[in-house]
Design a protein around this nucleic acid. Structure first.
Lengths: 161, 161
DNA sequence: TATTGTTATACTCTATAACTATA
DNA sequence: TATAGTTATAGAGTATAACAATA
């Protein structure tokens, strides 16, 4: 017999992915699938999804911003913002306030209920991330966060020299 | 005046996301959006997508594996594997070979064309990742890759104590 | 004319469930 | 009965394009 395993009758777990695991992108995709699933499960009891959670955070930090600005901050289109804001408004977590002198846009602001919910959710998410990253030192966690932040900013380094 | 800016008439770029950026998960999502867009653009000239690229890699590394095994390695359902394998077979990059003694499953194997394409694509993707991570030291790149690998394995640390 | 919010639509990715042909 | 592959379908998430109201 050769050293090559007969993959077709081997157990599922014996399949290797050494080549793919050399790429940062592949590891990032697999990591994000796990992290986002955990995050979704954490938010679900609060009636939030990843994007409504994110939108709520931006609105709290930037009171009276417009929907277009919210979309810019979240990196999504205006049409997508409508859905998020609808959902948050429906849950009475943020309000579409009219702004004097400009009837085209809204001034988005978190409600008292939205502020209260945020405090609870934020604490819960922090706890959850701490568990998720329990294997890492504090330095490693901060290093990971910072490197991802660098990769997640506006530029994509696509082709510009 | 106070330190609070009037967000509603500020330029779009002035919206802050300091709170969200504290979370690893948010940075990972934003990073993955950028990285995957870059990756897709890199693969497109080769007629590959992220998942067909990944599937090709797994098949090359595990000749004669089954579709179910491929799905296990990629973390997707069997029904999704069919689409990927259809696409790779259509492009003559892998073949669904019959296996003696079991007419239920296929033995997947890369074609000569698939092997040749892989060499070119792999080199191109490596180059691309190097550019994407150009701001990081070699140690940082490896550290990032390893931490993501740790987060992207089977366990999700959801609720088990 | 340009901008803000909105709606309708479509596309990508993936899971679920039901089916077939084998075992 | 159980398994491998397949098919149909549905859902989530998001983008594109066209539109109305307003600037």
């Amino acid at each position: 017999m050769s050293a090559r395993k007969a993959a077709s009758d081997a157990a599922p777990g014996t399949i290797s992915d050494t080549v793919l695991r050399q790429f940062v992108g592949y590891n990032m995709k697999r990591a994000y699938i796990n992290v986002s699933a955990d995050m979704s499960a954490t938010l679900e009891p609060f009636g939030l999804k990843i994007m409504t959670f994110s939108a709520l955070a931006i609105v709290l930090e930037n009171p009276d911003l417009t929907q277009t600005q919210l979309g810019g901050a979240l990196g999504i289109e205006r049409s997508g913002v409508v859905v998020l804001v609808d959902e948050l408004e429906e849950a009475d977590l943020i309000a579409r306030n009219r702004v004097a002198g400009n009837r085209r846009s809204y001034a988005l602001r978190a409600t008292v209920k939205g502020q209260a919910l945020w405090k609870k959710v934020e604490a819960r998410v922090r706890l959850h991330e701490a568990r998720l990253l329990a294997n890492l030192t504090d330095d490693d966690k901060e290093s990971l966060r910072a490197m991802l932040h660098g990769l997640g900013s506006t530029e994509g380094s696509s082709d510009e020299k």
